[in-house]
Simulated scan of single mutants.
Amino acid sequence: MALSHLAPPTWSVLQPLSGAEALDAGLPYLPATPATTSWGRLPSDADAPVMSVEPGTTVVVDTVSHEGILEDQGGDPVAFFGRHGIAAHDVLSDAITIASSGTHDLTGGPHVVTGPIEVRGAQPGDLIAVHMGPLTPRTHYGIVSSRHHRGLLPGTFPAEGPVTSVFCLLDEPGTDQVRATLPLRPGDAERPIRFPLQPFLGTVGVATPGERRHSVPPGPHGGNLDIRLLVTGTTLYLPVQVPGAGVYVGDPHFAQGNGEIALTALEAPLRATLTLDLIPADQARARFGSVAGPFAVTPEFLVPTGLDEDLDVAVARCGENAVALLGAAFGVHPEIAYAYLSAATDFEISQVVDLVKGSHAMIRLSDFAALGRELAR
Score class of each variant (00 low, 15 high):
4 S>P: 06
7 A>T: 12
12 S>L: 05
18 S>L: 04
22 A>I: 12
25 A>M: 06
28 P>R: 02
30 L>A: 04
32 A>M: 12
33 T>I: 01
33 T>N: 02
34 P>C: 08
46 A>K: 11
47 D>M: 05
47 D>S: 01
50 V>D: 10
53 V>T: 03
54 E>N: 10
57 T>I: 09
58 T>E: 10
60 V>N: 10
61 V>C: 06
62 D>N: 03
66 H>E: 10
67 E>G: 02
69 I>Y: 05
76 D>K: 05
81 F>V: 05
82 G>V: 15
82 G>K: 15
86 I>Y: 00
89 H>D: 03
90 D>H: 10
92 L>D: 08
95 A>P: 01
98 I>F: 10
101 S>D: 00
103 T>L: 12
104 H>W: 04
105 D>C: 06
107 T>E: 01
112 V>G: 12
112 V>F: 11
113 V>I: 00
115 G>E: 06
116 P>V: 00
124 P>H: 11
126 D>Y: 03
126 D>W: 12
130 V>S: 05
131 H>V: 14
132 M>G: 03
133 G>P: 03
135 L>P: 01
136 T>Q: 13
140 H>T: 08
142 G>V: 11
149 H>P: 07
151 G>P: 07
155 G>S: 14
160 E>L: 10
162 P>V: 06
162 P>I: 05
165 S>N: 13
170 L>Q: 04
174 G>A: 07
174 G>E: 12
176 D>A: 15
180 A>E: 08
180 A>T: 07
183 P>E: 15
183 P>C: 10
187 G>A: 07
191 R>M: 04
196 P>L: 10
198 Q>T: 04
200 F>C: 03
208 T>F: 12
208 T>W: 09
211 E>C: 03
215 S>T: 04
217 P>W: 00
218 P>R: 04
218 P>G: 00
220 P>G: 14
235 T>H: 03
237 Y>E: 01
240 V>E: 00
244 G>K: 07
250 G>T: 06
251 D>R: 13
259 G>K: 13
259 G>Q: 13
259 G>S: 08
269 P>G: 14
270 L>T: 13
270 L>E: 11
275 T>Q: 13
277 D>C: 09
278 L>H: 05
280 P>R: 14
285 R>S: 09
286 A>V: 06
288 F>T: 14
289 G>A: 04
290 S>F: 03
290 S>N: 14
292 A>E: 10
293 G>M: 03
294 P>A: 09
294 P>C: 04
295 F>E: 05
297 V>G: 09
302 L>A: 11
306 G>C: 07
306 G>P: 03
310 D>P: 00
311 L>I: 13
315 V>Q: 11
324 A>R: 07
325 L>A: 05
327 G>K: 05
329 A>P: 03
330 F>I: 12
335 E>V: 15
336 I>Q: 14
337 A>M: 08
339 A>K: 15
342 S>C: 13
343 A>W: 09
344 A>F: 03
345 T>Q: 13
349 I>P: 07
352 V>A: 08
359 S>M: 12
361 A>C: 08
365 L>G: 14
366 S>V: 15
369 A>C: 12
373 R>D: 08
375 L>S: 06
376 A>S: 11
377 R>Y: 10
